[in-house]
Amino acid sequence: MSAEQLAGLSDLFVVAAVLLYIFGMIGFAIELAFGRARADKAAVAAKQPVLVGASGEAPSSEAASGEGALAEAAPAVGDSGSPGWAVRAGQVALGLAWLGWAANLTAIVTRGLAADRWPWGNMYEFVVAISFAAVTAFLGTQVRHNVRFLGPFVMVTAALGLGLAVRVFYTAAGPVVPALNSYWIAIHVTAAILASGLMTLAGVSGVLYLMRGDGVSRLPARADLERVAHRAIVFAFPVWTFAVIAGALWADRAWGRYWGWDPKEVWSFITWVAYAAYLHARATAGWRGKSTTIVQLVAFGCLLFNLIGVNIFIDGLHSYADVD
């Protein structure tokens, strides 16, 4: 198969991935919308007055938090309290998400074969890869924990990312600038993409946390959303740290210095500091809930600006967006 045919095949698989993600989003949304709602138990526990009985003993923690009655009245989405057809819609959506993931992966592989290089040398390829990494983070988490409640939001994020790549960042397959012709692209950029995918999953969870009210809702409990975000960042942070270090080593090979205060380098460091502040706040200061979620979302905003804004709006040695 010629390079042109492989490039065309890659483009088709990107379109297929977008469609599969959209249909998956619809299925996940049906399960979320028509499943049974539940209360945020932590919020209920905080508001429930503690009563002392005739025996002089306070009620058990379960009774004080109101979990017993509310858990039965409003079971979680995807459990036995949801209609069977809604649960099946979620299961079908999960299958579509896996098919979209496979199409996304195939698009990346065929793009690399068409260009005869590592397939993230410009913004188009980078955004396609980050969309893939975000879905990978979601599906990988789903293997161990039921997080289908994140499905509609991760799928729409991935579909929008691929749509943005095709409509705004598209670049024909071809060679890259000499500075990118290095094995370091497979080390540095791969680590950055993996960390970015996990941080995107955390960002989606953080946005949902702020959207979720205290009462009964079809969104998951805030504690569950915060737990997903924290675990994703705990794994992503050392990977991002490695990506920054690998970038400095690559810079020394390419330009003869480890650090030159290039805009990309500066914003990579700012992003690192922001996520370090989030982890420090949780581990040392004991912050939880809305305060740490806001810090996490500020860090996610830094990440997005570093990945997209710097490449488009700021000139520097890392300006490889190929966008007019």
Score class of each variant (00 low, 15 high):
314 I>E: 04
82 S>H: 00
60 S>Q: 12
25 M>A: 15
259 W>T: 11
310 V>F: 05
20 L>N: 07
98 W>E: 05
230 H>N: 10
131 S>V: 07
113 L>C: 06
207 V>P: 06
75 P>M: 10
90 G>V: 00
38 R>C: 11
197 G>R: 01
270 I>A: 07
133 A>R: 02
315 D>H: 14
294 I>R: 07
314 I>A: 08
58 A>M: 13
236 A>K: 11
166 V>Q: 12
20 L>R: 11
296 Q>M: 14
216 V>N: 05
97 A>R: 01
148 R>G: 01
56 G>N: 11
44 V>E: 06
44 V>A: 12
28 F>V: 08
175 P>W: 09
105 L>M: 14
288 R>N: 10
215 G>Q: 09
296 Q>F: 02
251 A>I: 01
18 V>L: 15
306 N>G: 07
55 S>M: 09
202 A>W: 02
256 G>Y: 04
189 V>R: 01
193 I>K: 00
102 A>L: 15
154 V>E: 02
200 T>R: 01
288 R>C: 02
106 T>K: 07
78 G>D: 03
78 G>T: 04
128 V>G: 05
100 G>E: 02
124 Y>L: 11
181 N>S: 13
279 L>M: 13
276 A>E: 04
312 I>Q: 05
202 A>T: 03
311 N>C: 04
180 L>W: 08
69 A>C: 07
46 A>K: 15
306 N>S: 11
182 S>T: 15
285 A>F: 08
102 A>H: 06
319 S>K: 15
245 I>G: 03
299 A>C: 09
261 W>S: 03
245 I>D: 02
165 A>H: 05
25 M>D: 09
61 S>G: 09
139 L>C: 08
311 N>V: 02
35 G>T: 03
26 I>H: 08
31 E>V: 10
222 R>M: 08
116 D>L: 09
131 S>H: 05
171 T>A: 15
254 A>K: 00
119 P>Q: 03
255 W>A: 00
35 G>W: 00
138 F>D: 03
258 Y>F: 15
160 L>I: 13
298 V>H: 01
176 V>K: 10
160 L>N: 06
217 S>L: 07
22 I>F: 14
225 L>G: 05
76 A>Y: 02
264 K>V: 04
275 Y>D: 01
174 G>I: 04
26 I>C: 12
140 G>T: 06
221 A>P: 11
183 Y>A: 13
184 W>R: 06
168 V>E: 08
322 D>G: 05
82 S>E: 00
129 A>K: 00
239 V>I: 15
289 G>K: 06
106 T>L: 14
37 A>M: 09
164 L>A: 15
135 V>K: 01
112 G>K: 02
61 S>V: 12
114 A>V: 10
301 G>V: 02
16 A>Q: 10
281 A>Q: 06
166 V>F: 06
